[in-house]
Amino acid sequence: MKYHALLIDDEEGNRELLTRLLEQHCPGIGFIDQAASATEALDKIQLTKPDVVFLDIEMPGGSGFDFLNEAGGIDFKIIFVTAYDSYALRAIKYSALDYLLKPVDPKELIHAVEKLEEQIGQQEKIDLLSYNLSHDQDRRIALATQDEVIFARVSDIIRLQAEANYTKVFMENEPPVLLSGNLGHFEKLLKDQRFYRTHQSHLVNMKHVRKYVKTEGGYFLMDDGSQVPIARMKRDELKRLFT
């Protein structure tokens, strides 16, 4: 499988150099797009849906961290590429796959892409298992934590909440579990199971919605007592559904 990469750096020379290194040393990267700013990158991720973003940090008009905050639900892997090592701890917050220092060492780049291929490959196996389980009569989904794989009934899942590049799953009669993988990934996995994306950070099981409160900005009151906010752009859609 060939992966789609987006390179974000305000210096064209850096983008072209990284493109050449990927073409020479990383055959698993089959498609490469470039963006010179965070604003341009936000448009491109909507259009091209990259598997991985190689992201510079210090850029005029908005840093790499600003870009990630604006991107909301992160549906791609992140590899930081920067001349500064002082941001490494902050990068952990965004669950970065790797952190490469300029000038990029080809061996380190190869290692980063190998980690990308390994992570996506493992996730594809879990997704296939989840698909098979969810189409069984009992409709289950495989939730892979760091220590175990939970085979949860889809009907027991109340809601899912984005936690940076992770997702927290709330279920009936079970403690929440934190999973690697962004919310967009699980939205695709559960697309035929009556789940609704109310907000860039929230996905709810409509079977567990107790009431829709239209005041205070609008929110769903769930069976577990939690209040899930509804994004402004979703409110008109809900009005059409409930009128």
Rank of each mutant, 00 (worst) to 15 (best):
I74W: 05
D75E: 06
D75M: 01
D75P: 01
D75K: 03
D75Q: 08
F76W: 05
K77E: 13
I78H: 00
I78W: 01
I78D: 02
I78M: 02
I79A: 09
I79R: 07
I79D: 06
F80W: 03
V81P: 11
V81E: 05
T82F: 05
T82S: 07
T82V: 07
T82E: 04
A83Y: 11
Y84W: 10
Y84P: 01
D85E: 15
D85G: 14
S86N: 11
S86Q: 14
S86G: 04
Y87S: 06
Y87A: 05
Y87P: 10
Y87M: 09
A88K: 13
A88C: 10
L89N: 03
L89A: 09
L89T: 05
L89E: 09
R90Q: 14
R90L: 10
R90D: 15
R90T: 11
A91Y: 00
I92L: 15
I92F: 15
Y94W: 08
Y94S: 00
Y94L: 01
S95T: 11
A96I: 09
L97H: 07
L97G: 05
D98K: 03
D98M: 05
D98A: 10
D98G: 04
Y99H: 13
Y99T: 09
Y99M: 12
Y99E: 09
L101V: 07
L101K: 07
L101D: 06
K102E: 07
K102Y: 08
K102F: 04
K102T: 02
K102Q: 12
P103G: 06
P103K: 02
V104P: 00
V104Y: 01
D105Y: 00
D105Q: 00
D105I: 00
D105A: 01
P106T: 00
P106Q: 06
P106M: 00
K107M: 08
L109I: 05
L109M: 04
L109K: 01
I110W: 06
H111K: 14
H111W: 09
H111V: 08
H111D: 13
A112D: 04
A112N: 03
A112G: 08
A112H: 07
V113W: 02
E114W: 02
K115N: 10
K115I: 03
K115E: 12
K115C: 06
K115P: 03
E118W: 06
E118C: 06
Q119W: 05
I120P: 07
I120M: 10
G121D: 11
G121H: 08
G121V: 02
G121N: 12
G121F: 03
G121Y: 04
G121Q: 11
Q122G: 09
Q122I: 10
Q122M: 11
Q122Y: 11
Q123A: 09
E124K: 13
K125W: 04
K125Y: 08
D127L: 15
D127Y: 14
D127A: 15
L128W: 12
L129S: 13
S130G: 14
S130A: 12
S130F: 07
